[in-house]
Simulated assay, not measured.
Amino acid sequence: MAQTGSKQTPSFLEYVYQLNEGNSLSEAFSQSLTAIDRLEISQLEKIGLNTYEKEKWTVPTIFQHVIDWERIWCYRAIIFARKEGSIPEGHDQEMMGMHSHADHRSIVDLVDELRVVRQSSIMMFESFSDEILETNCEFFEYQMPLNAIGLTITAHQIHHLNIIKERYLPLIR
């Protein structure tokens, strides 16, 4: 992590920027919707509840995780944008995944929910002025511009879709 002021820029932010390939937030959100629309549902359904390794999440759990964390990041963004300033401590993604019940949901429903959540996120971020998007957000031990929260959302999707492509799609026989 890079030290700036009393808080540090999170080390994961470099990965976020890398995955977004230098795109603006608007471009990144647009590309993320296109990626959702291009998902091959039939291929994802063929994977079923199989995992590439014991103790790894199923594809439905991965999609639920992406949805849940987008909502968490949007909550954080609105808190900063509205100058409310109180962010609860971190969340346990493993606990959330374990209790998501995503394996009882269809891929179609999960992808539809992801699309709706993404559209809502886009509308929220589009409502922010440039001044708000440049706001320095400090939480936990981190600091980052609010704009980077939006890029974290799109990078998170890219990261998990890459995992599905590289590790789960080969499971289809």
Rank of each mutant, 00 (worst) to 15 (best):
T154C: 05
I41P: 02
D37W: 02
E27Q: 15
T58P: 11
F29S: 09
V116A: 15
S6I: 11
M98A: 14
V108C: 06
G22S: 03
H99Q: 08
E84W: 09
A81S: 14
I67C: 06
Q93D: 12
W69A: 14
Q8G: 01
R115M: 04
Q3F: 10
A28R: 01
F139Q: 08
V16G: 09
P10I: 00
T58M: 08
F139R: 04
W73V: 14
K165A: 14
R76A: 04
R76S: 04
L110F: 02
R118H: 14
D68S: 08
E94K: 13
P10Y: 01
R71P: 00
I172A: 04
G22E: 01
T4Y: 04
I132N: 03
E84G: 13
R167E: 10
R118P: 00
L13C: 03
H160T: 03
G22T: 04
S6A: 12
C74G: 01
D68I: 04
I47W: 12
D92V: 06
H99L: 10
Q8H: 08
L44F: 07
T135Y: 07
L114Y: 08
A155V: 00
G48R: 15
L169A: 04
K56E: 12
I163A: 00
A35D: 14
M144N: 02
L161S: 03
K83W: 02
D109R: 12
E14W: 02
V116N: 13
I78F: 11
H160F: 07
A102D: 00
L49S: 11
H99W: 04
W73H: 10
V16K: 03
M144I: 07
E45C: 11
G5A: 08
A28F: 04
P170E: 12
V111K: 06
E27S: 13
K165P: 01
C74N: 12
P88L: 15
D92M: 08
S11M: 02
N162W: 00
I172Y: 12
G5L: 05
E70D: 14
K7R: 14
K46M: 13
F128W: 11
E89Y: 12
M144E: 05
E45K: 15
M144L: 15
